[in-house]
Computed example of a mutant assay.
Amino acid sequence: MIVDDAEKRRLLAEVEKASEESRAAYEKAEHVAARRAAAVRAAMDAGVPRQEIADAAGIHRNNVYRLLGKTRR
């Protein structure tokens, strides 16, 4: 497929825009995941039962330790 210069610029601009949006979303997800892990860790340290933490997080209780990086998948 052959594209003219204007179409090529438009396509590359869209690639750049989508890539920047992807990077921003990834960075936000990393930040939110760290906040979630800290909240789970605080609840565990306070003695909150693992099942209650899992219910609040919307995950299976076996995933509580995975979320904290304590076990492998």
Results as ranks from 00 to 15, higher is better:
residue 56 A to G: 12
residue 28 K to L: 01
residue 41 R to L: 10
residue 53 I to M: 01
residue 41 R to G: 05
residue 36 R to D: 08
residue 52 E to V: 14
residue 58 G to M: 05
residue 62 N to T: 15
residue 54 A to G: 07
residue 50 R to H: 10
residue 52 E to T: 13
residue 20 E to I: 00
residue 35 R to E: 13
residue 47 G to E: 02
residue 39 A to K: 11
residue 55 D to A: 14
residue 27 E to R: 14
residue 34 A to T: 12
residue 27 E to H: 09
residue 39 A to W: 03
residue 42 A to L: 04
residue 49 P to H: 02
residue 30 E to I: 12
residue 57 A to I: 09
residue 69 G to P: 08
residue 69 G to Q: 01
residue 19 S to Q: 04
residue 43 A to Y: 04
residue 46 A to F: 09
residue 19 S to Y: 04
residue 48 V to I: 15
residue 46 A to S: 15
residue 22 S to R: 00
residue 68 L to P: 12
residue 57 A to C: 15
residue 16 E to A: 12
residue 45 D to L: 08
residue 66 R to V: 08
residue 15 V to E: 05
residue 70 K to E: 14
residue 26 Y to T: 13
residue 29 A to D: 07
residue 52 E to D: 14
residue 15 V to N: 05
residue 47 G to C: 08
residue 37 A to G: 06
residue 41 R to E: 13
residue 46 A to R: 11
residue 22 S to I: 00
residue 31 H to W: 10
residue 23 R to W: 03
residue 38 A to K: 04
residue 57 A to P: 05
residue 17 K to P: 01
residue 47 G to N: 10
residue 33 A to I: 10
residue 70 K to D: 09
residue 25 A to K: 12
residue 21 E to L: 13
residue 24 A to K: 15
residue 21 E to Y: 08
residue 26 Y to N: 01
residue 40 V to L: 09
